[in-house]
Amino acid sequence: MEDVLRPIYQERASNKDTLGILLIEKKKSESPVTDNLDAILFIVTKTTETSLFIKQYEYENERAALYMASEQQMSEWIMNGTNRRIIDWILNGKVLFDRNEYMENLKKRLIDFPREDRTKRIGVEFAKLIRRFKEGKDFYASNHYLDAFNHVIHALHHLARLSVLENGFHPEVTVWNQVKKIEPEIHRLYEELIISQEEVSKRLELLFLASEFLVNKKTELGAKHLVHIMKSEKQEWTFNELVHHPEIRPYAIDLGILLEFLIEKDIIMVKKVETKGKSLYHRHYVAK
């Protein structure tokens, strides 16, 4: 398939905007990594008109796709964990073109997983965890047990990924194999939720109790990224300033519920600032 795709990637390689080109080939009969196509040509560019451009091809009985993503889009996928295949592509794909060793350095950075990258990714996962956990508890309190069950499953997945990240690894698609070795306690909770013969409501009751302990245990770790930014740049922040901060943007959608949780845990405090309205105050946030 590489020979068939060569004219396509050679044309792209000649573009000065192209940073690197990878070839990912199908290795199993069922291959979600390649969307069951025979090959993926993944091109990273400095900029593109759109953040992601996809084109599909067919040659005789073989199928392939061209994925062209901007450097920014790829970074967002990696940081937000919204496209976990991308890590597989970078680590295991065949390098066809590499401008100034861009792909090699990117692969090395993924393997080394520097502390600053890990801390930010932990912040993203923790914010998602709090969102799912709080919404799950709300559904449970309203007797919507199946909706609560769904949210707890997602919360446990975020907790699992948090554990993997804490130990210096990228969460894989098969994250539960990783967690079973790293933090068996979380794996047992997941098994109890899935396998237990108890009624759903009873399972959830026990899971919320156990999960709350683990969430509290991870709170300082999960808040580290946000607290560091707040302390290092200025003393107090408005919500709008925080939500538009480029480092916080990956978890901006969950920032509100995260802040309230951290206020409950006495990690962040609220400072009231007078407005022109009587007894009406602006809320400013200060990291303790």
Rank of each mutant, 00 (worst) to 15 (best):
residue 76 E to L: 13
residue 34 T to S: 08
residue 139 F to D: 14
residue 117 D to R: 01
residue 61 N to P: 04
residue 77 W to D: 13
residue 283 R to V: 07
residue 52 L to I: 15
residue 127 A to K: 03
residue 245 H to K: 01
residue 151 H to T: 06
residue 3 D to P: 09
residue 191 E to Y: 06
residue 184 P to S: 01
residue 162 L to H: 01
residue 67 Y to P: 04
residue 283 R to H: 11
residue 130 I to E: 04
residue 167 N to L: 04
residue 121 R to L: 03
residue 72 Q to Y: 10
residue 149 F to L: 11
residue 61 N to G: 10
residue 213 F to D: 11
residue 118 R to M: 13
residue 70 S to N: 02
residue 263 I to D: 12
residue 7 P to M: 07
residue 214 L to M: 14
residue 187 H to C: 05
residue 79 M to H: 04
residue 147 D to S: 10
residue 249 R to K: 14
residue 230 M to L: 03
residue 26 K to V: 06
residue 166 E to N: 08
residue 136 G to D: 08
residue 1 M to A: 11
residue 90 I to H: 02
residue 107 K to A: 13
residue 146 L to M: 14
residue 259 L to G: 07
residue 37 L to F: 05
residue 271 K to T: 14
residue 117 D to A: 04
residue 189 L to Q: 11
residue 147 D to G: 06
residue 264 E to V: 06
residue 235 Q to K: 10
residue 36 N to P: 03
residue 264 E to A: 09
residue 22 L to Y: 00
residue 251 Y to K: 00
residue 131 R to L: 14
residue 13 A to K: 02
residue 36 N to Q: 10
residue 128 K to Y: 09
residue 286 V to H: 08
residue 21 I to V: 05
residue 58 E to Q: 14
residue 268 I to R: 05
residue 127 A to F: 02
residue 92 N to S: 12
residue 139 F to H: 11
residue 34 T to N: 07
residue 60 E to Y: 06
residue 46 K to F: 09
residue 97 F to V: 00
residue 184 P to R: 03
residue 287 A to M: 03
residue 17 D to Y: 02
residue 268 I to H: 05
residue 152 V to Q: 12
residue 56 Q to N: 14
residue 164 V to L: 05
residue 270 V to M: 07
residue 188 R to F: 09
residue 122 I to A: 01
residue 256 G to N: 11
residue 207 L to Y: 06
residue 31 S to M: 10
residue 281 Y to I: 00
